[in-house]
Every structure is written in C-alpha cells, then in structure tokens.
C-alpha cells in the first residue's frame, strides 16, 4: 500500500478522527453483532425454553434439534446447495459481464443514444406488470417452469446495478478511453484492457450485490419451481419453516393427521445461520477491493 510509505506525523485532526472512528464503529459493530449472537444462541437452545423464557445471550440448555431437523433430509439439502451455488455462480458471472458492458456503453460520450437507453432501462424500475404476465411469459412461451434458467434469468439484470456500474466507470478518467482509442484499440479492447481492470472495486461491489441477490432469492423459486429436486437452498428452508409453523396451528385446528412435533422457533434461527454461512465466507474476498488507494497503481501503470 503506497500510503504507508509516506509518513506524515498525524495532526490533531487525524487523531480526533481516528479516536472518534474507533468509538463510533465499535458501538455500531456491537449493535450489529448482538442480534446475530442471539440467533446463534437461540438456534442451539431447546424449543420449549425459548418459548417460555425468551432470548438469552447464553443458552441454558443446549439442544441441536433444529439442526437435526434441517439436516435430516440431508440429501435434499445438499441438492439445494448445489442448485443455489450453480445459479449464483453462473448468474453472477453472466450478470456481471452484461452489467459492466452496459455501464461501459453508457459512459461513452460518443454513443449517441446513451441517455435514451439509460431512460429505457430506468423506466423498468418504475413500472412492472406484476406476477401474472411474467409468469405467462416464462411458463407458457419460454417453457422454463422447473428449470434453473428461470432462476438465473429472472434476476439477471437490475437497473440499479447497471447505474451503479455506470457511476463507478464515470469516475475513471475518460482521457484513458480516448488515449486507448488513439492507440488504435477497438471498443471491446478498451472494455477488457482499460475499463475492467480499473473498475475492480466497482465490479467487486456490483458482483457482491448480484451474488447476494441470487443467493437470497426464494421468491422466484416459489413461483416457478414445484419440483423438490430443483429447490434452491433458501426456498427449501423457507418451506421447511412455513410448514413447521403451519403444522403447529393445523394440529390444534384438528385438521392435521400426523402428530409430528417440529421445532419452529429454533428452526427459524438455525435456518438463518445455515443460509448466511457460505455467503459470509465470500465476503473477505470481496473486501480486499475496498481498500483505499487500490486504484492508484493501475492508473499509473
């Protein structure tokens, strides 16, 4: 990191900034951490204790029932992990490619329709036709019901990510584009040789958002996927939860035939963790692009 090479004695402003920064961030970090810890603690608690005594920072009784009922159908769980990983990785790569290309086109001042197209894209955030026509499109005309493609396609491009990308690329000095053009590079070469390497932080951010979106999406699965083998992780767990919840009530209403008792409060907690885990592992890889000054070397080179 270049900044560390230059040593300037910290002035009082920097000191107060640093001090305040640690203080504020420490408090915020704690506020964000405590609820998550409560989830961890609750997920390994005993269902009845949670219902009777509420959340505790330290579980008094330890029970792994919730995890047991998640991993009981471990084949289905494994399957759903594979589906989610496939959808997330393929979808993210594809989406990132298209998003960054669009962002690039939209900053090229020599592209005449860029404002028109920007509006064309933005407009889709304002109006949507609702679920039914989209469903007809996917199911009747594209015959994509019960395929992974419907999951990939429905979240592929978001105007927000495109505009965010455009915004990142705008901050790259435009003179670089012009210089490469004079050097005889074509549009695609400028994109791959100049824009992509220079917008790493942007790509990391947008890529993270796209990946999170794919990872968390259970909604489209609830519309288009009715075969258990194709359930993505989030939807599998979502169904598990809502069924546990329903059975509890149905049993009391006398309409449920089997007397099954499922942990439901602790299940909520455990699923939250099972779902969050892997994507958290991804985060540190993205994080390294957010370090101040990461751009400097590349611009010089």
């Amino acid at each position: 990191m270049k900044t560390t090479a230059i040593s300037i004695r910290p002035d009082s402003g920097t000191k107060s900034f640093t001090l305040l920064g640690y203080g504020v961030m420490a408090i915020i970090t704690i506020i964000c951490f405590v609820p998550f810890w409560l989830i961890v603690a609750a997920s390994i608690s005993d269902e009845a204790t949670i219902l009777r005594e509420g959340f505790k920072l330290w579980p008094r009784t330890v029970s792994l029932d919730a995890y047991r009922s998640i991993f009981q159908g471990s084949k289905a769980l494994l399957h759903s992990y594979l589906v989610t990983i496939f959808v997330t990785s393929v979808g993210t790569l594809l989406a990132l490619l298209l998003t960054s290309m669009t962002g690039y086109v939209l900053i090229r001042v020599d592209f005449p329709h860029r404002n028109g197209i920007a509006f064309f894209i933005y407009f889709t955030t304002l109006f949507s036709g609702g679920v039914i026509p989209t469903y007809i499109l996917f199911v009747k005309y594209l015959a994509l019901k019960n395929t992974v493609w419907v999951l990939i396609l429905s979240c592929l491009l978001s105007p927000w990510n495109i505009f965010l990308m455009r915004n990142f690329m705008k901050s790259i000095p435009y003179s670089l584009v012009e210089a490469s053009k004079i050097d005889g590079a074509n549009d695609l070469q400028i994109y791959t040789a100049v824009m992509v390497p220079l917008s790493k932080a942007g790509l990391a951010t947008v890529g993270l958002f796209i990946a999170l979106n794919y990872w968390n999406d259970w909604y489209h699965a609830s519309l288009y996927i009715t075969q258990e083998a194709l359930y993505p992780l989030q939807y599998l767990l979502y169904r598990m939860l809502s069924n546990a919840e329903y059975m509890k009530q149905a049993a009391a209403a006398g309409i449920f035939l089997d007397t099954v008792s499922l942990p439901s409060e602790t299940l909520k907690m455990a699923t939250a963790l099972v779902v969050t885990g892997p994507i958290l592992l991804l985060y540190p890889f993205v994080q390294k692009y957010f370090v101040k000054g990461i751009m400097i070397g590349s611009v010089k080179g």
Binding site: V131, I132, Y135, I136, V139, K140, S222, R239, S242, N243
Partner: peptide, 19 residues
C-alpha cells in the same frame, strides 16, 4: 403439494394461465 406458504399464489397463477 404447493406448500402452506404460497399455494394461494400458485393457484392464482395456474388458473389464470390455464396450465
């Protein structure tokens, strides 16, 4: 089985689109 969470939704889609 369409689940307890969204069978309402699915019924609407299936019936409106004539699947």
């Amino acid at each position: 089985n369409l689940g307890w969470d969204n069978y309402n939704n699915q019924y609407q889609l299936i019936l409106t689109t004539g699947e």
